[in-house]
Design a protein around this nucleic acid. Sequence first.
DNA 1: CTCGGTGCAAATGCTTTGCAATGTC
DNA 2: GACATTGCAAAGCATTTGCACCGAG
Lengths: 147, 147
Amino acid sequence: MNSEAAHDILAKYLKSNGKRRATTERYAVLDEVMRTQGHFDAEGLYYRLITNGVKVSRATVYNTLELLQNCGLVSKYRFTENSSRYERSYGRPHHHHLICLECGDIIELVNERLERLQNELCSEKSFTPQSSTVQVFGTCSRCRKKE
Amino acid sequence: MNSEAAHDILAKYLKSNGKRRATTERYAVLDEVMRTQGHFDAEGLYYRLITNGVKVSRATVYNTLELLQNCGLVSKYRFTENSSRYERSYGRPHHHHLICLECGDIIELVNERLERLQNELCSEKSFTPQSSTVQVFGTCSRCRKKE
DNA sequence: CTCGGTGCAAATGCTTTGCAATGTC
DNA sequence: GACATTGCAAAGCATTTGCACCGAG
């Protein structure tokens, strides 16, 4: 998707943050992220980069993912035990997740009322929200039918 | 708190689950959990057990925490990067978390409307919910003032 | 007496780190 | 040229596992 706009955001972020440098690796990782639909993990992204002939190290992938998080281009989640999952967040509305415990499928949820209610509850507690996740674990309709 | 009732729940669960056995270690871990206020991690619980003269291994602590999760006595969360956090869930309403990124404080949130809205959204997607967490990351009022 | 559970230490798997080499600014 | 960033392999860390021993049923 609009990869160029994402480049701009990263460029602006790097410049505004003093000593941070624009390296080929960082843009390569960003491109791969923008090419990716849905959720992915660090290892998978690394594998796809290598397979596409991009020379990066795992360390750089992890570093860059953190960087991209900081400029709001990527979100990070921890649904299951072992590994962190990421997703492209540029150009996508804020949303939440229904996670099927049977098949691991993730259904996304966008809801204005939920956002509003959350904000309301935060101000009741004088809490200034920055980011949030709603994670509902359960069974999706497909798996439900199988049983 | 009502540790005896919790014992009963565990006993019932063990019996109903065929081959599972009631060991001293399991009850010792449960007792320590019931004695704990707020959130804790596996290592901390292990440490407190050892310090109190209870002989258990880390492996058993992890095992038992999973067991207690399965009978609904304990909930598990993954707020931060590294380690899982647990909390006693027996005798407590379902609630959510506002997590302060400055001081790490966790504010609990109980709200009926939020629960209802969640359930509504699930049925729209024909999703059968089992458990859920809402995690809002931000700044608490105390840290807000400091800035 | 059986077989599920425990303890230990070693293994696992994701993620980070230390340091020399590299490439941006 | 200075120094932030990279790559590599090794280290870290929370959690799990394999196996011999133990003890609940």
